[in-house]
Each structure stands twice: as C-alpha cells, then as structure tokens.
Design a protein around this nucleic acid. Structure first.
Length: 458
RNA sequence: GGCGCGGUGGCAGAAUGGCUAUGCAGAGGACUGCAAAUCCUCGUAUGCCGGUUCGAUUCCGGCCCGUGCCUCCA
C-alpha cells in the first residue's frame, strides 16, 4: 500500500487513486531558456522513481510533464544573445532530454508544449471571465483572487498575509493586489498569439492548468514539483482550475521535493553556485549523479558537493564490482525484494532502499558458488532497476572515463596487463609493480584474483 | 512581520515509546609475492531545559541554533 506525503494536509496519507486502472500524474517541467542545473534534475529523478513505482502497482499510468517554451526569460535571452526565440527553445529542450536520459529518467508519457496548448488556455481564460473569476484590464487578463474561496489552501497563506508581505509594487490595473496575470500583451517583436483581448501571451500559471486538463482531465491523482512552486505557482494553478471547473479539485495529492543546496545555500542561478547537469556528466557518470540525488529523502534538503558525487560513484563501483563476473540466473527474473519495495511505498524512502541494496551487494560478495550467486544477483539487479540503477554491463561501467581524461585506451591497458602478467610469471615483481603503478598514475586500478586480472578506471 | 522546515556517531543518512539501520572514514584480522578488491571483528550519536510515562532520541511545552517561502525559481 502506497503512502505519500500530501502537501495539502502536510501529512502522510494512504494513496487512493481515482481510478485504480489508470493513474494520472502531472509534474511541472522545465522552462527552456538554459541548461538544466542539478536542482532542476532533482524533481525529474524523484518523480521518475515514483513513476516506476506506480507502473509496478497499477496497470496504466499517464505521466505528463510539460515544457514551458513561452516565458519572459526566454524572450530576454533571445534579445540579449540575438539567437532566435525558437532556436533557443528547441536547442534547450533537446539538451534537457539528453541530460535526463543520462540520468536514466524515463521519458514522460506526454510532454506537452506550452506553445501547443494556446487554444486550451484561451478557452479556460474565457471560462474564468464568464464565471466572474477573471477580468480584462489594460490589455491584460487577470485572475481575481478574492473570488476564489479556497485561495491559500495549499500554501497556507491568507490573502491578507500575502498583501502584508508583498515586496512587489502592485500594477495599477489590478483590482486586488493579489490578482495575477492570465494573459498579457506582447510587443510586435515578442512571441504572441491573437486573442479576444488582443495579441499576447499566457501568464506563467495558466499553461499548467490548461495542459493538465487537456491530458489528465479535470481532477487527477498526483501533482508534483519543487518546494518553491507551492507559492505562487501551484496555488494559482489550483485557483484557476477549480474556478473553471465549479470547485472540482485539481489534484488529490500534491508532492513537493526539497531543495538542493551547495554549502547549505540554495542552489540558484543568482547565487552562481549551481552545477549544470551537463558539466557534472563530464566528471562522473549520470548514474552516479542519479544515486547522489536519491541518497537523501526527497522532501529533505540535499546538500550537493563533488565529494558527495564521488562517493556515489564509489558506491556504484562497489555494487558493480559485486555483479562483475557473476553468473546470470537463467531462471526467470526475480521480483523486487519486499523490504525494498516497502521502503519506496512509504513515501519514497530511497535512503532506506539504498541500504537494502547495500545488503544485497554484501550478500552477493559473500556467496561462494555460482548456484548461490545467481539468485542474489537477480535480486540485486531487480532492486537496482526500481531506482533506475545497475542496468548497464559492469564492464561498461568500469570503462567510463571523464570527458577530459586522455588516459590510456582500453587496448593499451590490456597490453600492459599482458606484459605485467608475463613479468609476474617470471617472478619479476619489480617490473610487475612498475606497470601497475604506472597505470595507477593514469587512473587505472588493477585487481588480481584467482580468475585473472581485472581493471577499472578510478 | 506572517507561514514553514530541520538539528541523530568524524562525515553522509534512515528509523523508532524500551532491544538504535546502512554507507564512507577510522582500528584490528583473513586473503594476496606486495597491493587492490572482498570478507570477518570493533569503537563512537540522538542541540538544551522541563513535562507525560515503568521507560523518550521518538509524544507535549519552552529555549537555543540553522534554514526555506512570502518576487522569477525545481
């Protein structure tokens, strides 16, 4: 039985799907104006683990993650660099896909573009005006917050508090200081679409409401995203959708992942303390990055460092080392170990799941015969798969090298190992150790065992 | 000012009203030509002060410290 922490209640709840034969999940995706940093990758990996879990327990899951390709940051970037708007969004979306693939994140079932959902947004805006929840003013359309009875339910803020704490000047055309934009005018040189309120573009929040409705219906099961989206983004999404749908809930469960920090500061562009996924992939394999992101519970803050990344890689070295050279079970694939599945069913307790994987790896290392090893190996692989880990060939894993590493090629290493073997046979240990030390200096570690010498890049 | 989160061994990080994971690092041992890897053994923790309880790290209250949101943000 799956339990998840619901931001609406601030409590762990039993997950009760609307339709047990078909689960709907929406997660806010990237705004494509720049390379994804690791903070952007965290929700992708976290909800990927949830997606995999749901797929094991329900016959059908529809996972929707949007791409925001209309945004003022993209417009600003285009103006600044001279690169055409569409070129930026297309290139950045592709880079995002490449990065997430490297992290072993499964693609969502549906990945709608904001620019492809304009008619649905215009429909919803018209409905909101019709129902008295929105109004046109000065080329804009604004959502009227006081018309929404439950506004603040998710973020637990009252409208008065919002106004009291406001740090932004209120635009003169707003009826209420808390009102937010559904549609805004575009200058001739800015991307825009014709609408009853003039040529313009959507506000940030309406896109998710429209895309969620289009692909998942009025009410769906799970809505996810980063903690910082609770307010205002998700609060506003709820306001728009519920008001457009006569009060029907938008999502029954809201899940939010904690921040990624660097030296305990939030990783952000403005602090310039961010790492892009891209630059980290040059330092360590994507799988190590993924493990590092899952090494803490998703709701806790996670402090990232290159050391933490290297530790994750060392952990995977150990696990792949346990798998290396072990006979595969020819029997059918074993199921996911119960203890591990239970850990994930309890609000995605990935650290506990990882502890179980350690236990399996140790068990595999202790197993002496192929007959004992095969079933443990199968369980370890099944365990890895639920976290999106351990699915590559161990030999491939150990051959990975950093992007700038101009170390010896695989063939050169093999040649050196053969030379060393000859020296060892002749009991010329000085020469043998010289070869080993020379390779070690180039980042290649040799390991002798009864079965011969294996190597890995450290 | 309002709302919220967190303080667990040297580090990372779970869990729990009593018997306290897991990993890394550290100490000792096995194995090895020597290593590496692996295996075995070992040490060390629940911010402070009260309360409830037979018993609290776990529940309640206060305090201290750190931190997030209230503006674009995963």
């Amino acid at each position: 039985m799956l339990h998840i922490h619901n931001t609406l209640s601030r409590q762990k709840e039993e997950f009760r799907p609307i339709d047990p034969t078909h689960i709907g999940m929406y997660v806010c995706g990237p705004t494509v104006y720049d390379f994804a940093h690791l903070g952007n990758a965290r929700p992708v990996v976290v909800f990927d683990v949830l997606y995999r879990l749901l797929k094991r327990h329900y016959p059908r899951v529809t996972y929707v993650r949007n791409i925001t390709d209309i945004d003022d940051k993209i417009i600003a970037k285009s103006k600044e660099s001279g690169e055409p708007f569409l070129s930026i969004t297309k290139r950045t979306a592709q880079a995002f896909h490449d990065d997430m693939d490297a992290l072993n994140a499964l693609p969502p079932d549906i990945e709608p573009l904001c620019s492809g959902t304009i008619p649905q947004m215009l429909d919803m805006i018209a409905t909101l005006i019709e129902k008295g929840h929105a109004y046109a003013a000065d080329g804009h359309v604004l959502f009227h917050v006081p018309s929404m009875k439950y506004y603040g339910e998710l973020s637990r803020r009252s409208r008065d508090e919002l106004i009291a704490g406001a740090r932004v000047e209120v635009a003169p055309y707003k009826k209420d200081p808390a009102d937010f934009v559904l549609w805004k005018p575009s200058a001739p040189d800015q991307p825009g679409w014709d609408s009853p309120w003039g040529r313009g573009r959507p506000g940030w929040h309406i896109e998710c409401s429209a895309m969620a409705k289009m692909h998942l219906g009025i009410t769906f099961d799970i809505h996810g995203g980063g903690l910082d989206l609770i307010f205002p983004h998700h609060e506003n999404e709820i306001a728009q959708s519920r008001c457009a749908h006569d009060g029907a809930p938008l999502a029954n469960y809201w899940m939010h992942n904690g921040f990624l920090t660097v030296n305990n500061d939030k990783m952000s562009k403005s602090l310039k303390n961010f790492f892009t996924v891209r630059e980290l992939l040059a330092v360590a394999p994507g799988e190590a990055l993924r493990l590092a992101l899952l090494s803490g519970h998703y709701r806790q803050p996670l402090d990232f460092s290159v050391e933490a990344l290297q530790k994750a890689k060392a952990t995977l070295d150990k696990w792949y080392g346990a798998l290396r050279g072990k006979a595969a079970a020819h029997a059918e694939k074993l199921g996911v170990p119960v203890a591990l599945e239970d850990a994930l069913l309890d609000d995605l307790n990935t650290p506990l799941a990882i502890a179980h994987i350690h236990e399996l790896a140790n068990e595999l290392n202790r197993a002496a015969t192929p007959a004992e090893q095969a079933p443990i190996r199968a369980r370890l692989l099944a365990a890895g798969e639920v976290l999106g880990l351990l699915q590559q060939d161990p030999e491939t894993w150990f051959r990975w090298q950093p992007a700038e590493g101009a170390g010896p090629t695989d063939a050169e290493i093999e040649t050196q190992i053969a030379a060393r073997l000859a020296a060892r046979k002749a009991k010329n240990y000085a020469e043998s150790d010289r070869i080993r030390d020379a390779l070690a200096a180039q980042g290649v570690i040799l390991e002798d065992s009864a079965g011969g010498t294996t190597w890995r890049r450290g």
